[in-house]
Design a protein around this nucleic acid. Sequence first.
DNA 1: AATGAATGAGCGTTCATTCAT
DNA 2: GATGAATGAACGCTCATTCAT
Lengths: 206, 206, 206, 206
Amino acid sequence: MSIPQGVPISAKGKNDKYHRILEAAVKVFAKFGFHESTISQIAREAGVADGTIYLYFKNKDDILVHFFNFKTRQVFTRFREEVGQAINAVDKLRNLVRRHLEEFQKDRYMAVLYQAETHRIRRQAETQIREMSKLYLDLISAIVEQGQQEGLIRKDLYVGLVKRYIIGGVDEVINTWLHSDGQYDLVSMADPLVDLFIQGIGARNP
Amino acid sequence: MSIPQGVPISAKGKNDKYHRILEAAVKVFAKFGFHESTISQIAREAGVADGTIYLYFKNKDDILVHFFNFKTRQVFTRFREEVGQAINAVDKLRNLVRRHLEEFQKDRYMAVLYQAETHRIRRQAETQIREMSKLYLDLISAIVEQGQQEGLIRKDLYVGLVKRYIIGGVDEVINTWLHSDGQYDLVSMADPLVDLFIQGIGARNP
Amino acid sequence: MSIPQGVPISAKGKNDKYHRILEAAVKVFAKFGFHESTISQIAREAGVADGTIYLYFKNKDDILVHFFNFKTRQVFTRFREEVGQAINAVDKLRNLVRRHLEEFQKDRYMAVLYQAETHRIRRQAETQIREMSKLYLDLISAIVEQGQQEGLIRKDLYVGLVKRYIIGGVDEVINTWLHSDGQYDLVSMADPLVDLFIQGIGARNP
Amino acid sequence: MSIPQGVPISAKGKNDKYHRILEAAVKVFAKFGFHESTISQIAREAGVADGTIYLYFKNKDDILVHFFNFKTRQVFTRFREEVGQAINAVDKLRNLVRRHLEEFQKDRYMAVLYQAETHRIRRQAETQIREMSKLYLDLISAIVEQGQQEGLIRKDLYVGLVKRYIIGGVDEVINTWLHSDGQYDLVSMADPLVDLFIQGIGARNP
DNA sequence: AATGAATGAGCGTTCATTCAT
DNA sequence: GATGAATGAACGCTCATTCAT
């Protein structure tokens, strides 16, 4: 894996090969897993020659790096927008989770690939992932802090843990949905889940 | 992948190759990932010849199946024991989470492998994994139901979602720990995490 | 073994790899036998890389199938032509046997491979071989029947047996020649052999 | 392949391991072919350990050599006996062919193995085979010469060719029988076949 | 003598990558 | 830029053979 140099100049012009290959790769990776996918499959799916892929990506790993860099970064940007739409912290969290589920439901290939490969890539490209998580972390941190000021969220929280607590729940809901072949509506899980995040499962004993 | 026939008789000894190979494989898989690991690496790590591995395992996949079947099933059994030690639901949940983190902290190779491969293996050995998850889910279900009867846990819960909520949080805590190179004490996360599960992050406003 | 899909389009050129590999394979197979030959040997003989072979043949077996399908089928076609040249049955038989010995003498590699593998391959590709033998058998049947009508060949014959009687003799003559390192002229055996077929070894006692 | 040193002393005593292994090997070789058979299969079939085989045979090839040396040599000896029973040349030939078909029909494993491997083994053990054929050749030579003196067999024959003519026919009849799964009675082919050898297929025109 | 666990060389095959066109 | 035929390193796996017991 290597540090991506950004979208090649040539790809900026038309909606061209670069994106076609990236989309194709995500689709193929999602279907067969990264290692089980071949460059030939991706090329076929993208409608280009095998060799062409190497004009846009340094190697097979590089495709995955670009995926994490652009495809999902884009999604995370949308998360931020969505959070910006709400006023108070609880609504922000609800919007975040809802949008998260929405985006992943909308692009199943991305969802599969993200969930599958995120846990595998270690040393390599770890920076990428960490950075990506940081985006999420920052979002949640901001929400939590705001909520604490608003009096909506407990003050005795270790924010680092809260982040994992929330991401974990959302991820697992997505995973279960993916493994169930996506038969049901994922987004409908958002509100009950946020309710759990806020209220916990404990009974309110007076 | 195939249905494992249990530990070969010859492996019942103590210095036996079966376990040496299994341990070695877990170690290597954890370091490089299943697909990136080679039989030769495992053999070298176990101090045996390549061919020897095939006396104890049908093929490379079979090693993974055995891992999921024995190594982690064993861990799950311990979870059940631990849960049995506590009386009320909240204590049970706390014990479960604590023990979970303990076990995974104790055997880092297993932790990495479990977290990494659990999300990838789809078709093959899926049954194995699903079965394993089911053990966990059943545990939580029982706890939640008991807690509801005890009045410690809210009654207006969709238990299916609660399971994901809890597993997700625990998994993510482990993942973060793994990616941080396990520098801090994982178990110390248990109580704060369970507190979140029970209380949520919302402020208690009368 | 699999049903060959014909010569790949790309192989239609003249310096083409398809034929180079096939020739090389026949040569190597003839020298060492099918099983004792390796892909590397064939690749080296053909002057290509190991992997290249798999661009033209599905697998090692497939090479043998193609051999039987094209190389020898071609020869059998020539047999038919040769038979067509003669008028009466005895001349036809003589032409057939002569041409048979000629072709096999001309392409020693094919001869060895044909004689060697024809008796071994059972299940796999058996259909191929049987079909090939059938071509030969049909030729002989037609000749015998014609001869019977012409009064040149006995009418009290079990044609099924006659076929084996003739093929057997020809095969054995070729085999002996092959094992003698082909020092003498194989074709010169044709006429005496056909004479035996026709006259037998019995003395004509009035 | 190596020059066999004869049956090991230890095997001479009882009808022991040596023969059990040889029988087992023939059976397994016949079923799967020489190369597709494994030492383990043979050992299992013989009811001995893998390693035991190496106490009686130098290596896998050696088993085949011993087969050709003893098993079939024995059969050829019987041929000679059978020929000895008849007085004139034609009867001798008939007895020979009949016995040949009988023996091969009786021991199908031997038949398959003999027919299959006889055409393959080249350089190695070639001496063995040649020697074996020589036994047959000598038999036929003697018969032909006697027949010529008796006036039963043509004098204008090249005996070397006659041998191939006869062996070829017999072999092919056996082969066809083997490939037909031995459904019909092989021995019944003897007399018609010998008739062909003697009379040929040509019509007797006065 | 007999065993069978252990070995490791060697195989067929795949596929990321290159490069002449 | 685009191609896709060609490459060859690398892998999983088999199995004849050895040798400590």
